[in-house]
Structures are given as structure tokens and as C-alpha cells.
Design a binder for these strands. Structure first.
Lengths: 217, 217
DNA sequence: TGTACATCAGTGAACGCGCGTTCACTGATGTAC
DNA sequence: TGTACATCAGTGAACGCGCGTTCACTGATGTAC
């Protein structure tokens, strides 16, 4: 039929959900959140504007799916960055930091969406799950990458949180292009991440007294 | 005249620009960026929907004015928090952190707007200026609050940047409600800020080797 | 192996919406003389 | 002190827009018998 979309030879698409998420992610990267539209995503997938409603309850559900895959992708990117580092604890921790910040720098609009209040994890359990999993994996990874001597006094969750906050802060500044000009011009993103983590790691090393000791660990 | 807005007895408003910025800030706090609309701001100011164009070129210009005042307010809040701290360097630094994070927690939508790519500082010089001034003031404040012994090896701008990134990270996590539930339930925002700054300050203290010494300072 | 039929995944037209922005206009203000 | 007039800051009606969403529909699929 002439009215069937360009990329299809059959009335049914076959994998429309996948195609819509990909279209939306493309729109997000190219034009920001504002550019993500159910109609535009449908158009990009070569399908009528009502078709997405077979797969997503509303626009926010589509955004939630995009954000969900963002968390999975970030998780994978950080893991692979760590896998490429040597066994030295400090280097592995730096690899986490670089992987994290680089992901954000390479996918600014996606990173922003992932942390924005809409779509809300509360309303979209799979998104919530992906975010929680990524957070837990990151914290576990950070803890793993500390050397054995440091780990005897295992830092409580709120010290790990400080590390996470630092990474998020660096990533956000990079993503939002808020770095002072002199820094932005001379220091590559990866170096900022490494520097930050070095400073903080020194802090953790000397902050055992702040940690609540975990008996028996 | 019956057609004149409720709050006015004269055809001219008198201080419409001020009123529009206030309305917009109110809408922002109450409904998020999405709720900020030229028409809604005009309505709230008791004025026709075309009136704002006498004072703002377009919608983004109104948002820029709101963000600009946000930077000024945050700057003032942090200064007053520091002014209330005693002379001890560590306590003063903690006061900066608490002031920063508390401002963000109290004005989440505003804080988000201030760092978002729209309105862009590039397109709105006064916004750019306010952001730069706030950044510079913050960095200066952070540097001031370190004690003399530490300051002999003055940390270069990229170490100050680490501190700033940490504050921004904590603030962002709080603002976006992304804290793990167990932390959010048990640790007040201010305590997170203090803890973060303590850890980092230890790190700075032991990271002189990272700093490029400033000859003659 | 063939056929009836329930179910699923699309179509296309239409709705109502609030928005940003423009336009010709008019009331108010203040300054030159 | 009074008046003409330029300028400014509002009005109100209208435009076009793309959007989210709904609806009755139809083509395709796959399963029971």
C-alpha cells in the first residue's frame, strides 16, 4: 500500500517500541528535551502519530523508557572503563570517575533527563529500578576500587555518597557548560574528574574518624 | 475604567517589570519551569498578555531575569550564612557549604533554572554577569575561609573547582530528589553538606603536592 | 490442512488547548516653549 | 501657568502553531478446532 511507511513493507512494524525509544533518544541528543515529542518520534519511526499509544501510555512513559536505557548505558560505560584499568586501587577509582564524567559529557541531554524530576521514578517503576541499580552498582564499584587497607574501616553509605555527589557535580558542571572559561579551555574533562577524585580520595583516607566502624567486617 | 486590572487604579502599572519577574518566580516555585509562561505571568501581574513585551523581548528574556536574581539571592544567602559563623576556618567553610546547599534545597526549581542551558548566559549578558559574579564570589569565599597555614600553598583554581563541584553535586542530588531513601530519611541536608566538606577539606589539606605553587604568595 | 474468529497493532481524521507573538490602537506622562 | 505634542506603556483581538490525546476504523496475526 502506498500509505505504508517508507521503512516498512508490512502493515505491522514489528518492533515499534524499540524504534520509538531510539527515535526519541535521537531527538533528545539532537534537539534537547524540548525536541522530544510523541509526534516527532512517530514521524521518525515512519508511523502514524497515534501508533505510539499502542506502546506507551503517554509522552512521559516514552521519556521514562529513554531515561531507563540511559542508566543502563551509563552503568555499562563505567564498568567497561574500570575493566580497562590496571589493578591499582587508585587507578581503578580514577577510571570510575573518568567513565562517569565522560559519559555525561558525551550525552549531555540524556544525562540531564536522567536526573530530572520528569519523568519521575515514582511513576515509572522500571525507571526507578534502573536508577537504583545504577546507583547501587556505582557505589559498590567505588567501594571495590578502594584498596584493602582502606577498606578495613569501611566507609558508611554517606561517605560513598560524598564521592557520588562529587562525580555528579563535576558531570553537571560539564554538561551544563558552566565551567569558568579558563578551566574549560585548558583542562580536559577527564583530567577534572581525575583531579577531583584524587583530592577526595585523600580526604577519605584521612577521614576514618568520621566513619562509623562496621563491626566484624 | 472597568477594564483596568484589579490591583491598579491607573492605566500605567508603574513597576511592571518588577511585578513580572516576581510573578514568574512565583510560578517557577509553584509549578516548575513548565508553569512559567508569559501569559500566566501577565495574568498574575493583572495586565494584558501583550504587556510583557514592553519589558522583555521574549519569554527567554523573562526567564533570564529570574535566573539572574536567583544568582544574586544565592550569593547573599551564602554570605549571610558565613557572617553568622565564628572565626574558625573550618566552621566558616562549613557555613559556606550549608548556605549553598540549603539555598538549593529551599528553591529547587530556581536552582535548576539557574544551571540549565536555557536561558543561556551567552544570549543574556546580565545573566552571564550575575552567574560569573556569584561563581567568583563563591570561590573567593571558599579561599578566604581556609586558614592561613593552608593558604600558604594557595590551591589553584582547579582545586577550588573541585570544592565547587562537590557543593553543586550535593545540591543537585538534593534538588532532584535522587538521594537513596535511607540517606534522605535519616540525614538532614545540612549534615550532608557538612560531611562532604569535611571529607574534601581533609583531602585538600593533604593534596598540596597536587597544587601548582604560586610563587611569591 | 483449512477455516472461523478473537486479538493485536496499526491508520487517519479530528478535538481542544494554551502558547508565543504581532498588530493597530489608545490612555497617560512629561517636556519644550 | 498653559498648551501642543512626542513618547511611552498599556489594551484587546487575532494569527498560526504543534502538541497530546481520542476515536472509530482496518489490516495482519495466530490459535482453536
Amino acid at each position: 500500500m502506498a500509505s505504508v511507511g517508507l521503512g516498512r513493507s508490512t502493515y505491522h512494524h514489528g518492533n515499534l517500541r524499540r524504534a520509538l525509544v531510539d527515535s526519541a533518544a535521537g531527538l533528545l541528543a539532537a534537539r534537547g528535551v524540548h525536541g522530544v515529542t510523541l509526534r516527532a518520534a512517530a514521524r521518525a519511526a515512519g508511523v502514524s502519530q497515534a501508533a505510539p499509544y499502542r506502546h506507551f501510555a503517554d509522552k512521559e512513559a516514552l521519556l521514562a523508557a529513554v531515561a531507563e536505557e540511559g542508566f543502563q548505558a551509563m552503568n555499562a560505560a563505567i564498568r567497561s572503563a574500570v575493566a580497562g584499568a590496571d589493578g591499582d586501587a587508585a587507578h581503578r577509582l580514577e577510571a570510575v570517575a573518568v567513565g562517569y564524567v565522560r559519559f555525561a559529557a558525551e550525552h549531555p541531554a540524556l544525562y540531564r533527563l536522567m536526573w530530572s524530576p520528569t519523568p519521575s521514578g515514582r511513576a515509572h517503576p522500571p525507571l526507578r529500578a534502573a536508577a537504583d541499580a545504577a546507583g547501587a552498582a556505582l557505589l559498590a564499584l567505588i567501594d571495590e576500587t578502594r584498596d584493602a587497607g582502606q577498606r578495613t574501616a569501611q566507609p558508611p553509605v554517606d561517605l560513598l555518597f560524598v564521592l557520588w555527589a562529587l562525580l555528579h557535580g563535576v558531570a553537571s558542571l560539564v554538561v551544563d557548560e558552566q565551567l569558568p572559561r579558563d578551566i574549560q579551555a585548558t583542562v580536559p574533562v577527564e583530567m577534572l574528574a581525575v583531579r577531583a577524585i584524587q583530592v577526595l580520595n585523600e580526604g577519605l583516607r584521612h577521614s576514618r574518624s568520621l566513619a562509623v566502624p562496621q563491626p566484624g567486617s
